[in-house]
Design a protein around this nucleic acid. Structure first.
Length: 567
RNA sequence: GCUCCUGUAACUCAGUCUGGAUAGAGUGUCAGCCUUCUAAGUUGAAAGUCGCAGGUUCAAAUCCUGUCAGGAGCGCCA
C-alpha cells in the first residue's frame, strides 16, 4: 500500500523511491489519512536532485498542487489525497486496505525481516555466579538477552545462547572461608537462601575486620591450585547447588542455553593468556600483571594479582578466545549490567591490542540496574529479593485472580496458568522499559495486573480466543461496511513488521513490548465496539481476530512470554 | 577530578536514534458502562514551564553547546 503512494509521488516528483519512502509517515490520527507526505523539504530535495526548483516554495502550496495533480492520475486503490496544511494525506481505499493487511498478516512469515545469507550471532547473557543469590535484578539481564535472541531468530539469524558463571575466584574463597570459620556446624543444604546467606555473612565480617582478608587470600590460593582436598570438595558440592537451582529458573523464564561456561574452566587458560601478554610486552608488571590502557582513556586493567592468582579479567580474555573457537559467528553480543561497561570496554581494547581476529565482532549491550526506591539491590549485602521468593508471591496473586474470576476452582492447570501470568507480568514490566534505564522496583507495590501490564496482554488474547473457539461453521467474509475500529486494528497490525525491524536494529525489546500493548488496547476497543458472533460482519471480524491473535502471539513470543488460550 | 547512563502529568513510564500536525499511556482521583462474545475490560473528565539556559532550523521533548540534579564506573570483587 505504501508502495502505491510512493509510486504516485515518484511519478509527480521524480525523486528516488528511497527518498520518498523516508519522508512518508503515518499521521498522528487516523482521521487525517492512512499515509502522509510532508512537503517542507521538497524544494530543497528537488534542487539537490538537479530538477528545476518549483516556482512556489511554500510547502502548503506544494501540497495543494500535488493533491490536484495526483487526483487526476490517481488509481482506484487510493480513495483520495488531500492537502492538510503542508501535509499531503492519502486515504487508501478501505476495502483494498483491509484485504491487503489481512492477507499479509495471515502469512506464515508475517513480520519477519529476513536477511540473506543467514548470519550467526552468539549472545551471552544472564551470567549469575554460584554461591550468590539469583535475585530480581538477574531477571532483567535474562529477559533482555532472551528477547534479543528471539528477535534475531525471528529475523532468520542463527542464534547461539551462552551463559557464563563465576564459580571460582575471590567471591567463592570468601564463601568457603566464612563457612569453614563460622558455619562449620551447619548442615550443607541446597537452599538458595542459606547459600546466599553465607556469602553476605562473609562480606559483613570482612568489612568489620579488614585483616581477615589474608585468611581469605590463602583459601583463594588453595582453591585455585586445588592443593587442599577439603576446600576442593566443599567447592564442588556447593557449586552444584547453585547450578541445579538455575534449571528451574531458566525453565520458568522460557530460556534455554546452548552452553554454560564456567570461570573454573578458563582459569588456567586465562593465566596463560596473561603471561603471554606480558611476554609479548603488551601487558606490564609491577606488583601485579596489568594492561596499561591510559592512553586510550581506559585506565588500568589488572590481569593477575600480586600473589599470582588469576583475576576475572584474564579469565574473560580466555573465554572470548574459547567462544570464538567453539562457535564461529558474525557477531558476539554480550549483555551486561551498566556498571560493567567500563570494564568490558577495557576488555575489548585488550582483545584488540592482542590482535585477536574477532575483536571487532565483540559488541556489548548494557542495561541499567533494577533498584529499590531507597537504593541498590545487591548479592553482596543481601539487600535483594530472591527470584524464588519473588516468583512465588507473584504467582500467588495471579492464582488468587484466577480463582476469583473463574467458577472452575478445580482447574488442574491453574498453577501452570498462574505461572504463565506471573512470568508475563514480571517480564513485561521489565521489557517495556528502555534497556539503558534504571528500573525502580518497589516491593510494596509488588507487580501490577491491570492497565499496561503483562496480564492485560494475556487477557486480551484469551478474550479473542474465547470468541474464535465458539465458532463452529465457516462464515463468508465480506468487506462491505468496514467500521473505523476494524480498520484501526488492522492498521496497527500492519505496523508489526516495521517494529520488529527496528527492535532488532536497535536491540530494543521495549519497542515490541510497547507495540504489544498498543495492539491489545486497540483490540479491546474493537471488542467493545464490534460484536462478532451473529453479526452481519461476523466473517470479516473473525478474520481480523485471527490476525490479531497471530500478531499478538508472535509479538509476545519475541518477549519470551507465552500466551494463554483461556484465563 | 574524569567517563558513561538518566531527567517528560502527583507516581511509574512511552515518544528522542531518523526534528514535523493538538506531547501520549498506565496507576491514582472524579463521573459513567456487565439480562449481549471473559469487567485482569471499556467510555469520559481533571492533571504537563518535556530539569534549566543558549544555539541550529520554516519547525526542537527530539539535533548541538553549556549548566544543574540523580544513578553508575574509574588497579588487584565479578
Amino acid at each position: 500500500m505504501k508502495q502505491l503512494v510512493i509510486k504516485l509521488l515518484q511519478k509527480e516528483l521524480g525523486l528516488s523511491q528511497k527518498e520518498i519512502e523516508n519522508l512518508i509517515e503515518i499521521p498522528p490520527r487516523s482521521e487525517m489519512g492512512d499515509f502522509s507526505f510532508p512537503c517542507f523539504s521538497i524544494p530543497k530535495k528537488l534542487a539537490d536532485a538537479g530538477f528545476p526548483a518549483p516556482t512556489n516554495k511554500n510547502p502548503t502550496a506544494i501540497a495543494q498542487d500535488l493533491a490536484k495533480k495526483i487526483t487526476k492520475s490517481k488509481s482506484k486503490k487510493i480513495e483520495k489525497s488531500i492537502a492538510t496544511g503542508p501535509y499531503l494525506n492519502f486515504f487508501i481505499d478501505k476495502k483494498f486496505l483491509a484485504k491487503e493487511i489481512l492477507k499479509n498478516s495471515l502469512e506464515k512469515d508475517f513480520g519477519k525481516n529476513i536477511q540473506k545469507p543467514a548470519k550467526k550471532i552468539v549472545i551471552e547473557f544472564s551470567q549469575p555466579n554460584t554461591h550468590k543469590a539469583f535475585h530480581v535484578g538477574h531477571i532483567r539481564g535474562t529477559s533482555i538477552g532472551e528477547s534479543i535472541a528471539r528477535i534475531h531468530e525471528f529475523n532468520g539469524f542463527k542464534v547461539t545462547r551462552l551463559n557464563y558463571h563465576g564459580d571460582t575466584g575471590m567471591h567463592i574463597a570468601k564463601w568457603i572461608w566464612a563457612y569453614q570459620k563460622f558455619h562449620k556446624d551447619e548442615k550443607i543444604i541446597s537452599d538458595e537462601k542459606w547459600v546466599a546467606g553465607i556469602y553476605t555473612d562473609a562480606i559483613k565480617r570482612l568489612a568489620d575486620n579488614e585483616d581477615l582478608q589474608e585468611e581469605v587470600d590463602t583459601i583463594n590460593q588453595k582453591l585455585e591450585d586445588k592443593s587442599d582436598k577439603a576446600i576442593t570438595e566443599l567447592w564442588k558440592k556447593t557449586r552444584e547447588f547453585s547450578i541445579k537451582s538455575w534449571d528451574k529458573i531458566y525453565d520458568e523464564l522460557n530460556t534455554k542455553f546452548d552452553k554454560h561456561y564456567f570461570e573454573s574452566e578458563v582459569e588456567l587458560e586465562g593465566k596463560k593468556v596473561a603471561l603471554k601478554l606480558l611476554k609479548d610486552k603488551i601487558a606490564k608488571k609491577d606488583d601485579a600483571i596489568f594492561m596499561d590502557l591510559k592512553e586510550y582513556n581506559l585506565g588500568v586493567l589488572v590481569l593477575l594479582r600480586k600473589d599470582g592468582t588469576v583475576l576475572y579479567s584474564a579469565k574473560d580474555l580466555a573465554l572470548a578466545l574459547k567462544k570464538a573457537d567453539e562457535f564461529p559467528a558474525n557477531e558476539y553480543l554480550l549483555t551486561i549490567g551498566d556498571e560493567q561497561k567500563h570494564y568490558f570496554n577495557q576488555l575489548e581494547k585488550t582483545l584488540e591490542l592482542m590482535k585477536f581476529k574477532k575483536a571487532r565482532e565483540y559488541n556489548i549491550l548494557t542495561f541499567g540496574m533494577v533498584r529499590f526506591p531507597e537504593g541498590k539491590m545487591s548479592s553482596r549485602t543481601g539487600n535483594n529479593i530472591l527470584y524464588s521468593e519473588f516468583i512465588e508471591s507473584v504467582k500467588k496473586i495471579a492464582k488468587d485472580g484466577l480463582i476469583l474470576r473463574s467458577d472452575k476452582q478445580n482447574d488442574p492447570t491453574i498453577d501452570e496458568k498462574a505461572l504463565t501470568i506471573a512470568i508475563a507480568a514480571i517480564k513485561y514490566s521489565i521489557l517495556k522499559q528502555e534497556v539503558s534505564k534504571n528500573i525502580i522496583f518497589d516491593p510494596s507495590k509488588a507487580i501490577a495486573f491491570e492497565g499496561d501490564t503483562g496480564p492485560y496482554l494475556l487477557y486480551s488474547y484469551a478474550r479473542a480466543n474465547s470468541i474464535t473457539k465458539k465458532v463452529t461453521s465457516k462464515v463468508k467474509v465480506s468487506f462491505d461496511n468496514l467500521e473505523p475500529q476494524e480498520l484501526k486494528l488492522l492498521k496497527k497490525i500492519n505496523e508489526f513488521p516495521e517494529i520488529v525491524k527496528r527492535a532488532q536494529e536497535n536491540q530494543a525489546p521495549n519497542l515490541i513490548a510497547n507495540f504489544s500493548y498498543e495492539l491489545a488496547k486497540i483490540f479491546n476497543e474493537f471488542y467493545h465496539a464490534c460484536p462478532v458472533l451473529g453479526n452481519k460482519s461476523e466473517g470479516l471480524r473473525l478474520e481480523i481476530i485471527k490476525s490479531f491473535k497471530n500478531t499478538l502471539e508472535k509479538s509476545l513470543d519475541l518477549l519470551g512470554i507465552n500466551v494463554l488460550e483461556e484465563m
